[in-house]
């Protein structure tokens, strides 16, 4: 399940009013989430949760569900 907080961070960063996120949603299905904007989304998530990803962790992430899991695991470490 993608949390409302994560959804909101992404919507704000991409300047979208609404978008239905599911666990299987991938970046290229979301309007505006292209290879240039990708890094801005990742940094917005890092800043909002006050966490820091490793490069390889982000490369592994394939969809929204996995991004949520990564965020959760980082929060547990803190």
């Amino acid at each position: 399940m993608v949390s409302d907080r994560l959804k909101k961070i992404i919507l704000d960063e991409l300047k979208l009013d609404s978008f239905e996120f599911h666990d299987e949603t991938t970046a290229n299905q979301v309007p505006g989430w292209d290879s240039f904007n990708h890094i801005n989304v990742i940094m917005a998530v890092e800043k909002n949760y006050n966490i820091r990803f490793k490069g390889i962790e982000v490369l592994k992430v394939k969809n929204m569900g996995e991004l949520q899991k990564l965020v959760d695991s980082k929060l547990q470490q803190n």
Binding site: I39, I42, F53, G55, L59
Partner: peptide, 12 residues
């Protein structure tokens, strides 16, 4: 996937 994204991450 294998070059641009890792570079972009490390220069973020």
């Amino acid at each position: 996937d294998y070059l641009f994204k890792p570079l972009q991450m490390s220069f973020r």
